[in-house]
């Protein structure tokens, strides 16, 4: 691998046809906290979270074989210390010297994830607030209704009082 690819500010990974790691650049090794020799020859499963392993197997193989490419697949990688690293992965299937490779770029999205999680949290609290508002509005409507009933009753009593007054005046 040339030095540019090795040090480029995003992860690079090439897999053999059976998804075993063929090459991996230094940037990705640093992110994953592994040595080169520790990962080469291992299945990509080794650096995926359990959930991502299933997802990878369901979608990566059909997409790369039938479409020859994968775009913006969201996965969770695992570092050697067990830290979860959310990434976006793009891949192409390419033949070099008669050998098939799945060449992948891997882009960690820790900040993006934090942002999305914040949005999700905001959406959840907005939803909760909307729900509470709806409850309050329903309560308000209920009270307004009670109030209008009461007003109508008061009106009725007033009318009755007036009628009584008129009658008593006539007497």
């Amino acid at each position: 691998m040339n030095d540019t690819l090795n040090r480029i500010p995003c992860g690079y990974l090439s897999l053999r046809d059976d998804n075993k790691i063929s090459t991996i650049n230094q940037t990705l090794l640093d992110i994953l906290e592994y040595d080169h020799t520790a990962l080469v020859g291992l299945s990509i499963d080794f650096i995926l979270s359990n959930s991502s392993r299933i997802f990878f197997r369901i979608y990566f193989t059909p997409l790369i074989l039938l479409n020859t490419k994968v775009n913006e697949m969201f996965l969770t990688f695992m570092s050697s210390s067990g830290e979860e690293i959310p990434v976006l992965l793009n891949a192409v299937r390419r033949e070099t010297d008669g050998v098939i490779y799945h060449e992948c770029v891997v882009f960690p999205i820790l900040r993006q994830m934090e942002y999305e999680n914040q949005i999700n949290r905001s959406e959840t609290s907005a939803k909760k607030a909307r729900h509470e508002l709806q409850l309050l509005q329903a309560e308000l409507e209920h009270k307004q209704h009670s109030l209008s009933v009461l007003k109508a009753q008061v009106e009725l009593y007033r009318n009755q009082m007036e009628e009584l007054n008129v009658k008593s005046d006539k007497r």
């Binding site: 979270s49 359990n50 959930s51 299933i54 997802f55 979608y59 969770t76």
Partner: peptide
């Protein structure tokens, strides 16, 4: 092959990918 947490994580992962 999988714990319940793994499978719940898979559902979450799918949601993230499919929405996009």
């Amino acid at each position: 092959g999988f714990s319940r947490e793994d499978l719940a994580g898979l559902i979450e992962l799918m949601e993230k990918n499919f929405v996009g």
